[in-house]
């Protein structure tokens, strides 16, 4: 027979067990157990991601919104994030100031060609370093890496004098020549990408072709290069973007002969004032931040479009091309 106290004890025990169960259940829900993530953890992660993501997107959103604001909206402190009307006048003016389409064509001309040359040459050099053994290879490898840390300013002046003597300042050749010989913008990175890539690819196919009597250059062109498509795509894309955004060298080498969208953006204010002289205090003709923002949006828009089409390669290409391999 059970006494009353024992019954009570049992009752308390089951009750505490029940409470424990609830406690663990909620704990598991919020903090997670081994292997599964709790709610709190997830909230934290998504919170951080969204928060940081917002910080990243904030300037873009700001640009986008302000570029559609008319002068009234800009002056009205109540209009903050949503313009009262869909105003495209800023874009019309910015388009005129940047001379958008012809500048775009010129920009493509001075970015796509060097990017192509740089990628092609980097593939050849990377292949040579990855597949062949020769004297001084280690030294060359170290020098390739060393070229990455040499600031362009150090070689800029002699190159400037040299190009001046060759009479290629102000033409695309000033970009093309270094790119064609593996000394373009960040060439070291692209050589490294191809080097890592070709080292990771098994040699068997190439050896078989060699036994069949194919020469090294034919093997490179017909077997190795088609395999390297991911590395080619990522090299070209990065090269393209970096050449596009390069304004320092472009300004010095090209002078006034060639221009790019970022360069036009750099002298946006000056060009605007020349085009729309602010005479007679006309409010309409004042340069306002809406027009400036429209100009900025226009100058990055082509890159944004390219990025959204190719972002899969940009982001995944880094793991696939094996930058991080040893």
């Amino acid at each position: 027979m059970q006494t009353k106290t024992q019954l009570d004890k049992n009752y308390v025990k089951t009750k505490t067990q029940q409470l424990d169960k609830y406690y663990f259940k909620t704990k598991r829900m919020f903090l997670g157990m081994q292997g599964t993530d709790g709610l709190l953890y997830k909230v934290l992660i998504y919170g951080l991601l969204v928060g940081i993501g917002f910080v990243y997107l904030y300037p873009l959103l700001y640009m986008g919104v302000y570029s559609f604001k008319s002068l009234d909206d800009l002056l009205n402190p109540l209009v903050n994030w949503i313009p009262t009307q869909f105003y495209t006048g800023n874009y019309e003016q910015a388009n005129q100031v940047l001379n958008f389409f012809s500048t775009l064509m010129e920009t493509l001309y001075v970015t796509v060609l060097p990017a192509l040359a740089q990628t092609a040459v980097a593939a050849v050099i990377g292949y040579g370093l990855a597949r062949f053994e020769f004297k001084g290879k280690k030294i060359i490898f170290v020098l390739v890496l060393a070229t990455f840390i040499i600031p362009p300013q150090v070689t800029l002046i002699p190159r400037y004098i040299f190009f001046n003597e060759l009479n290629i300042l102000g033409s695309l050749k000033a970009f093309m020549f270094p790119a064609m010989f593996g000394q373009g913008l960040n060439s070291a990175i692209f050589i490294l990408i191809f080097y890592q890539f070709f080292r990771a690819v098994p040699k068997a196919l190439e050896e078989a072709a060699q036994l069949d009597g194919a020469g090294h250059f034919r093997i490179f062109l017909t077997i190795a290069l088609p395999m390297a498509t991911p590395a080619i795509i990522i090299s070209f894309l990065f090269s393209f973007v970096w050449y596009w955004n390069e304004t320092y060298l472009a300004a010095i080498y090209f002078g006034d002969a060639l221009t790019t969208l970022p360069l036009q953006l750099q002298k946006f204010v000056a060009t605007y004032q020349k085009m729309f002289p602010a005479e007679m205090g006309l409010g309409e003709n004042q340069l306002n931040e809406g027009i400036k923002m429209a100009g900025t949006v226009l100058s990055i828009l082509p890159l944004l479009i390219v990025y959204f089409i190719t972002q899969r390669w940009f982001v995944e290409g880094v793991d696939r091309s094996g930058i991080t391999g040893e």
Partner: peptide, 27 residues
Amino acid sequence: NSITGLLFVSPWIIGFLIFTAFPLLYS
């Protein structure tokens, strides 16, 4: 093989001498 290897790397060697090593010393 080592000659072929050098041939593949030769654009870089030439470029390095003309566009990097020489300008470096000259500056």
